[in-house]
């Protein structure tokens, strides 16, 4: 109405093709949007759903983009802003807390030189505070791209973990 902006066709063809594959594997069923977005998010190296991708998914599933946006901001495993190649999720809930997840977090902050919610300069790591992810018997633990790394109770273990993620 006001703006005379040009229509944008912002998705690279290969990304669009990959998204289409995900959609197809979910039968273009909009009720599976949460699962779809989880998969689509991992197509991006920074593990998030960029704005044009959200619009694209909404378009293809014939659902309002507000719905997609709402979902992206409701579920903590989904993000509409860039994260990192390796988002490090530190559990801060009670079972991990009493097993010194604070110490683990402090060590990670020190080694990476970032705070919670920040990303390292090379885009490799971001630190995220999360609630219990069900690895209480392996505390203190972090979760990175779906994998749990447990018993991180010494600096050596933490450093070795970071070094292994290239």
């Amino acid at each position: 109405m006001l703006s005379e902006q040009k229509p944008k066709y912002p998705l690279p063809a290969d990304l669009q093709a990959k998204i289409d594959l995900v959609l197809e594997s979910h039968d273009y069923d909009f009720t599976q949007i949460v699962g779809i977005l989880l998969e689509v998010q991992d197509l991006d190296e920074m593990h998030y759903v960029p704005e044009p991708v959200a619009y694209y998914v909404a378009n293809r599933l014939n659902m309002p983009v507000t719905n997609v946006f709402d979902i992206l901001n409701f579920y903590s495993e989904l993000s509409s802003t860039p994260r990192a190649k390796y988002p490090i999720q530190v559990c801060t809930s009670i079972a991990c807390h009493v097993n010194d997840s604070d110490g683990l977090a402090a060590k990670l902050k020190e080694l990476l030189n970032i705070d919670f919610g920040e990303t390292t300069y090379d885009g490799r790591f971001t630190l995220e505070k999360v609630t219990c992810f069900g690895a209480c018997d392996r505390a203190p633990a972090v979760r990175i791209n779906g994998h749990v790394y447990d018993h991180l109770d010494t600096t050596e273990k933490i450093r070795a973990l970071l070094d292994s993620l290239k």
Binding site: T31, Q32, V34, L38, I71, F74, Y75, S76, T131
Partner: peptide, 22 residues
């Protein structure tokens, strides 16, 4: 699949999640 929301353990929230909503 859920996507990280404790409240989805609540029945009606879980249902909304399966229905493709927050």
């Amino acid at each position: 699949s859920g996507a990280g929301a404790y409240v989805c353990g609540e029945g009606t929230a879980l249902i909304r999640s399966i229905e493709g909503k927050a």
